[in-house]
Design a protein around this nucleic acid. Structure first.
Lengths: 107, 107
DNA sequence: AGGTATTATCGTAATATTGCAATATTACAA
DNA sequence: TTGTAATATTGCAATATTACGATAATACCT
């Protein structure tokens, strides 16, 4: 009991859910929102921008990275992140195609 | 410790996260997927379609209802659900506008 | 090599989510 | 009103998530 029964769903259903899970925390929304508005990569100011501790930010970044939404690169001594635009657009498409299939012949 | 610090984020950030949270479980994706493909309202076949117990389905439906994504109406003795199309489109817009603001001048 | 700044990992406590059995509620039919 | 079918609620166990202090690792600089 207690654990999600992933085996009873289709691959696309699980995959949309996993993606949504990343957006299901306001810290990760805030992080993505912030990064996506920057002109270039962002380096180490996230902890100041969001109001969470450094380990917590690191954990959230890791969740976002796991689904391939970030490109990271070393620049000097700092790890710098920016959005992986291809993945970003792929996810947008995923959500869009989910929202697009709807019938409305009732109520 | 352990609880999301909602107070440090903006209203739109929290609201996108709350919406994403509903889509962050494959059962709810499957339920929405199924309902949205039906010709009319669906009545009481969800438990057979998805492989979960009746109380669990009921709980998931409740999560979906909470964000206004379902319209429910009594028809005979059965409670019937269908998608609230206005809300559905509103959420699609929410995700789209989130995905649309992105700069990409690096990497 | 030693110092500093930045990010990652570990360990752990608090909280949230998931799932179901048991039970209650609701609406209708006979 | 009694029975039946469908949905909701309660209570609880299992698991997952969130957050942070402490600590480790990494890369640079002097």
């Amino acid at each position: 009991m207690g654990a999600t029964k992933t085996e009873i769903y289709t691959i696309p259903q699980n995959s949309l859910a996993l993606t949504a899970k990343v957006l299901a925390h306001p810290a990760r929304v805030a992080i993505l929102h912030y990064i996506s508005r920057q002109e270039g990569c962002i380096c180490n100011d996230l902890v100041n921008v969001i109001g969470l501790s450094q380990p917590t930010i690191s954990q959230h970044l890791n969740e976002i990275k796991k689904i391939g939404l970030l490109k990271g690169t070393f620049e000097g001594k700092n790890l710098c992140y920016c959005i992986n635009k291809e993945k970003w657009e792929e996810l947008q498409g995923l959500f869009n195609s989910f929202f697009n299939k709807i019938n409305q012949n009732c109520c």
